[in-house]
Design a protein around this nucleic acid. Sequence first.
DNA 1: TTTTGAGTTGTTCGA
DNA 2: GTCGAACAACTCAAA
Length: 490
Amino acid sequence: MGGKPSIVWFHQDLRLKDNPALVEAIKQGGAVIPLYIWELSEEGEWGPGGASRVWLHQSLKSLDMSLRARGSALVLRRGESIPVLRSVIRETGADAVYWNRRYEPHAIGMDQQVKTELRSNGIHAESFCASLLFEPWDVRTRQGTPFKVFTPFWKACLAAPDPPFPLSVPSTIPSLKHRPQTLSLEDLRLKPQMEWVQGILKAWDVGEEAAHNALLRFLKRGIGVYSKDRERPDRTGSSRLSPYLHHGELSPRTVWHLVSKWREMHKGGVEAAQDYLRELIWREFAYHLLFHFPETVSAPLRAEFAAFPWKQDRFGLLAWQRGKTGYPLVDAGMRELWATGWMHNRVRMVAASFLTKHLRIRWQEGARWFWDTLVDADLANNTLGWQWTAGCGADAAPFFRIFNPSSQGERFDPEGRYVRRWVPELGGLPDRWIHRPWEAPASVLNEAGVTLGKDYPFPIVDHAMARTEALEAYRELRARNTFSTGTIQS
DNA sequence: TTTTGAGTTGTTCGA
DNA sequence: GTCGAACAACTCAAA
């Protein structure tokens, strides 16, 4: 019985189910030391943002409780990874460290350093695939290059062998007689004392159990109408699993196999299941791109976009962040984001399009704001989404695809229920005008108790004019690019 | 190597 | 009110 203790180093895998690093550590036969290290300064430019930290706080609490239920407990430390790992090893006599891989550029560098350092000291160090269905380097075109277009990527994933079945939750986790020292969760100071935090906590149940409940609820009630309802912010048509996936409370393999099973049991559900699995593969695609093109976290994938005529507009950015642009759907989304740490995907697109195309503010500004306010802030997804919207990313929309916030609202929130929920000052307006209050007759506004410019802003830009100018800017960029690359030879 | 078909999510205008 | 065309080429991935 019993080898030396092993450390399980947790990151974005805050779960016991389908956790290969944990299973490997238990397999060693000795005690297992579950460790979480917090050191923001080590995370580079993209350490967890505000909303993510709030989630992280709750999630660590929940993980600790699940560990305790199995005879173990989470060890919390602060400081740089290598010195902290070294001291835990020294204190406990551990001879192995296992963890589940991350794929952010900064994390990859870190992992490499840690592995080299530990191994050179005779410590086993191994990382596992747990947060993706496919490793980013395993999916490749016939020429061996990374994919830049989604549909062929999706086909390649479907043609690949199915991802492995999820590992089950270990029933007991052997622990040391004398537990190593640990900080308290409060010592990490992840959760600021702000009213904002309360809103986020009220909107979500955090933790592995909550994640599974959310998945089961989705399978029971949501997925059947997913194809139809997923675009509707006024209904709970999307899965809302993104924060659980990001923090690793839910394994994508668990989702993949449960959804596949659901598809086999529901004859009419093939389309809905495929639509949902496709979204999971979008997440894989985002990681694929981030892994192969790490510079895209800040630079456009299509290099010519470096010359795009963006505007400096502090007032516009602020109005957008606060949900005061005068376009109800955009404002509803931005307020939902602030209030709950989440925004419906359809609305994310409209809000992002508004920032980059109507206000012509750099997508990086939007990405940064989302990074700080989203509980599901994920470097891969965020980067892909913003570059896609701005038109400078992989598989980007044609430049002329500019969302009209009013008609998007009328299409996807036809009775204005979503807008009324988040922009209550417009609540009294009839459906006819809810997405375009500035066009409402004075008598209608009056009756609804709305004075534009006082209760709710006039649109900060005129849609038609902004659209024309954006198209002009894109044309200009293209012309400049054609000129500079030169087609003179032909 | 060259060729060919296709590419998440849209809007507007005019018949 | 509905419908099709125009909005522009360009790059990717496979044959």
